[in-house]
Design a protein around this nucleic acid. Structure first.
Lengths: 157, 157
DNA sequence: TGATATCGTACAGATATGGTCCTAATAATA
DNA sequence: TATTATTAGGACCATATCTGTACGATATCA
């Protein structure tokens, strides 16, 4: 369905809130506070916050008055970074990134068995690049501040 | 991971092949022929071809020498139509189409319990529209003939 | 030292995906 | 008319992924 996982969903909610806190000059925000504010399951939220910490998007401090904060300005964080941190590599199709397309015999490190004859390999690759470029260019600031992007994305699959 | 399902993957392969057949003035192409040519599991392929028939993207004729064919020109079939036929409604997030975002208590016909305070509802909706517009504008002809689209897609989430 | 809070990992239930199978319906042909 | 090739419409199951929980370890600060 081409849709975000719930994990990514929650992650964006948390990042948006951390962005607000940052704008107001607040310090670290605890996972508990975020979970209570938006009705999210706390352990699940902490799991994904961990992912965001590991990929450097947010920072964490332990102990009392600890919590999470954006590592940089929202304008420096792209949607692609967030999705990759939470959902792993973004692949429009399996073959888009040298991975095979089809067949259960396909293993991640094998070449696609029908690459020679596959009629969608190139089209898929171009689609993948279009979507990737888009996600790379959209920052959290664009998203949450409704800021426009200077660049244009031409449909030229 | 924002990726196509295998069903959609196979579906595009089949549609590309049917497009070739059409260009060469061929008649109906059997599911068996497609499956053998690309090494796809036949029952699975037939299942998704059924979906494509039901949504009017391809036509089918039964009996010997029967098979499938594109219902219209490839330029009239959009990527969105194909994905919707095979994967159901395209939703970048659950709340993008009046569905709720989060919480297990969320049912499809209920409003999102945190809609009032949700910081990503609007941003998600705009993202969803951007992606949808894109998929709506790309046709199979664009994809497989490497044709350019006249229109531009401005990043303005 | 004790309270708070994160970190890391392992685990379990729910849902979606990937794929099979069976029976009927339909059309061409011998 | 009988046969064969083909699609139609289901139900069905195995597996993977998603969603969420649990628990112990660790770091910080009062």
């Amino acid at each position: 369905m081409l849709s975000l996982t719930r994990k990514a969903d929650y992650g964006l909610v948390a990042l948006a809130y951390l962005g607000q806190q940052r704008a107001q000059g607040g310090g670290a925000t605890s996972a508990r506070e975020i979970a209570e504010r938006f009705g999210l399951p706390l352990p699940f939220l902490m799991n994904l916050l961990k992912d965001l910490v590991q990929s450097g998007i947010i920072t964490s401090t332990r102990g009392p008055h600890g919590g999470y904060a954006l590592a940089t300005e929202p304008g420096d964080i792209t949607l692609m970074q967030v999705l990759q941190a939470i959902e792993g590599p973004v692949q429009f199709a399996r073959c888009a990134d040298t991975l095979p397309v089809m067949g259960k015999q396909c293993q991640p490190d094998q070449a696609c068995p029908i690459a020679e004859v596959c009629p969608i390999r190139e089209p898929i690759r171009r689609l993948h690049e279009r979507i990737s470029d888009f996600l790379d260019q959209v920052t959290l600031e664009d998203l949450f501040e409704q800021r426009e992007c200077a660049s244009m994305l031409q449909i030229q699959v």
